[in-house]
Design a protein around this nucleic acid. Structure first.
Lengths: 214, 214
DNA sequence: AATGATTGGATAGTGGCACTCTCCACACGG
DNA sequence: CCGTGTGGAGAGTGCCACTATCCAATCATT
């Protein structure tokens, strides 16, 4: 298929597809002549994945490129490739290293993770964006005087753990490593808005039940 | 305290505080003379909340203003004021109304919510950003051929529901409606990164357990 | 008083980013 | 053989969260 058809089938403008090609998010089509290139179904699929990463996952374009590169890098272990998307997901501001809440938040986070027995990569853990995101969120809660102790956090961690098991089960239904990687990237990113939107709907539901009893 | 002190205590530059004042995110200080204004502890607190909404909650400045306005609007019901932040949280792109997956995603979402008995505001539900976010996420999953049926989504909804109950319990520990509103805004926004980061850490943990068994 | 620094306020500018517009040479189709 | 369409490349656009610059008033110090 030509660029125009790729555009029509994906709902992405040709200008934007050209931009993604330039940025290396999409492999070039097969050049037929100087002015014609052929794109296949896998381009369409890749383009949809890219859109999902960028629009639904709110990932910067440069980051999406890194994720896709890591996912394709066969020299990395399956574990690292699976984690590529998680590592690159947007994660907000870095912790204020000079704030006193940050140090306490870090202790809180470590206590929580230790208690859960999430010892895997304990050394590397503090480098992870997700860890820093957790620390900053806890520090923000602390600054505003809201609860952020292990007791309040544990339910979240327990649920997160359940979800991870469930998600990896889904990933393992795919046969080839390549499919598993792509599934992991897609599910990590796409189930995030599912989870957030359901939480928000549940809050509305519960708040209505308590404060707006009809 | 003066603007400079407010800046120092909050870690936000004076230029940015002035910007927030201009944008109406922060009430003006008490003007003492033509060149002096006095800010109180409540300004500091409000500023920290604003920062949390914008930086941690990734909310646009204009949106944060709306949230805070709604939270203060005493003509609204407690239920609506509690929901202000949820309503305004960033929620990604609007569903492609002309895509066929969207219609099916909408059915899927309705089936799920009906099954959960989340009937509250069923009519208004489709207007809610969270609902549209859910539909778009399901449609994206469908486009990429990943599972998005009620069976897969139910666990997420169940967990979301647990969290909502837990969060509303915390909100109800505050005495005055004003405190409850602020707590609701802050907890909605700040527990979101907590949940996401824990999910990502749990994934890393679980993926390591399965694929990188040491 | 004189004076240099500081304050709050207004305005214009900056930088990052995701596109998007404009050209261009080429080539296919009638 | 010519109008339309194609893919490629570079510059431009629009948005947005700040941020830098001015300015007049006023405070702190001499």
């Amino acid at each position: 298929m030509r660029l125009a058809e790729l555009s029509e089938r994906s709902g992405v403008s040709t200008a934007t597809i050209k931009y993604y090609l330039r940025e290396g998010l999409l492999p070039p089509g097969e050049r037929l002549t100087a002015t014609k290139a052929e794109y296949g179904e896998e381009h369409l699929r890749r383009l949809r994945l890219v859109r999902a990463l960028i629009q639904v996952g709110r990932m910067p374009v440069a980051t999406a490129r890194e994720v896709l590169k890591a996912a394709e890098d066969e020299s990395l272990s399956q574990h690292l490739r699976l984690g590529a998307a998680v590592w690159a997901l947007p994660h907000g501001p870095e912790p204020h290293e000079d704030a006193e809440e940050t140090a306490r938040a870090r202790e809180e986070a470590n206590a929580l993770l230790d208690q859960l027995g999430w010892a895997h990569g304990r050394d590397a853990r503090e480098d992870s964006p997700a860890y820093r995101m957790l620390v900053e969120a806890i520090a923000s809660l602390a600054r505003l005087g809201y609860p952020h102790d292990t007791g309040h956090l544990l339910p979240y961690a327990r649920l997160a753990s359940e979800l991870a098991v469930h998600e990896l089960d889904v990933v393992e239904t795919y046969d080839t490593p390549g499919e598993q990687i792509e599934a992991s990237v897609a599910l990590t990113v796409l189930y995030e808005p599912v989870l957030l939107s359901l939480r928000r709907l549940a809050q509305a539901q519960e708040s209505g039940r308590r404060f707006d009893q009809a």
